[in-house]
């Protein structure tokens, strides 16, 4: 055999989605079946070794309907989302391919969308992206040719109309479940639900929110979302994560764009004897509260460097796959 360890003729396009689905991804199947879905963010390796990808995904694989592969989040360079997704998809895991508008223009992005779909990716998350100044290489040129909404609309056009934005035909369009982010707990609080409405209008089918640590703010957001009838048009996965300590929480709040952590949460971590355990407990409690909020279809767990806790959190919160009603 040649350098291929797989017969190239055996690599086929994945099966078309079942009736009433756009992608047939595990995540889409779970959400449309009415299950409380779980997605989890993976810490991308700074390595060219595929085994490092599988190692990083391993603690999430059993409990997540899809694993999010971040696209240089915080403008820090790591292995690409598309590379991680290609590896994990081949290994049978559900993945969410994250696309940030910071680093690539419309030509690169549309090409990558086709490439990702060809490699088996079925979920995509459209993000504007943090500014380059937030990352480890602040001298880089920010691209922002698209924003998250024009990106959503573009992928919808590619999938549903089978054309590039230029109008040129795509012979085999990508069957992707299209997601977007929302940040319900940061300013402008009054306009956040309206921006979500715009994302739905642009074509988003699921939403993964930023961290929710402030339930009253989130409740207010969701109440307006329900007034607008958005929870019936889009699956909303609420973002959660275990905090490691009060110091880490303060650092995140001060240095990572778009993170709101109320003082009470930090105070609770401060008082705790074992802050790591307390952070885990807060996360479980939040999931249980979020589950009761009308219109929340699942959770998105971002446990940066605390991925080993995710499976326990999911089981303790009672939302693991084996705990789902049959």
């Amino acid at each position: 055999m040649s350098q291929f360890d797989q017969d190239p003729n055996a690599i086929r396009r994945y099966a078309p989605p079942p009736e009433g689905h756009v992608s047939g991804s595990k995540l889409e199947l779970a959400l449309r079946a009415g299950h409380f879905a779980v997605t989890a963010e993976m810490n991308p390796p700074d390595s060219a070794d595929p085994q490092d990808v599988f190692k990083a995904a391993q603690p999430l694989a059993d409990v997540a309907d899809a694993i999010n592969a971040t696209d240089a989040s915080g403008a820090n360079c790591h292995m690409s989302s598309i590379g991680i997704c290609a590896l994990l998809t081949r290994a049978g895991h559900g993945t969410v391919y994250q696309i940030s508008c910071r680093d690539r223009n419309r030509i690169a992005i549309q090409g990558d969308v086709l490439g990702a779909a060809a490699m088996g990716v079925r979920n995509v998350l459209c993000l504007t992206g943090d500014d380059v100044g937030a990352g480890d290489q602040p001298g880089a040129k920010p691209v922002f040719d698209f924003d998250s909404l024009t990106l959503i609309r573009t992928i919808r056009t590619m999938r549903d109309q089978g054309v590039f934005l230029s109008g040129r035909k795509i012979t085999s369009p990508p069957n992707l479940f299209i997601g977007a982010a929302e940040n319900p707990c940061v300013d402008p609080l009054e306009w956040r639900p309206d921006r979500l409405a715009k994302k739905v209008a642009a074509g988003a089918e699921f939403i993964q929110t930023n961290y929710i640590f402030d339930m009253p703010r989130f409740q207010a957001f969701m109440s307006r979302v329900r007034d607008l009838g958005l929870e019936r048009k889009v699956f909303i996965l609420a973002g959660v994560g275990p905090l490691a300590s009060a110091k880490a929480a303060r650092w995140m709040r001060g240095n990572v764009p778009g993170i709101h952590i109320p003082d009470q949460v930090i105070a609770r971590l401060e008082k705790a004897e074992n802050p790591g355990e307390e952070g885990r407990r807060i996360c479980v409690e939040l999931i249980q509260q979020l589950r009761e909020v009308a219109g929340v279809a699942g959770v998105h767990i971002m446990a940066y460097r605390r991925e080993h806790l995710v499976a326990d959190i999911v089981r303790e919160a009672g939302i693991a796959r084996e705990q789902r009603p049959a």
Partner: peptide, 15 residues
Amino acid sequence: PKQLRNGPCGGVRPG
């Protein structure tokens, strides 16, 4: 700075 045509992004600071 991100020249968004459909903003705001999720990074807006308090206030």
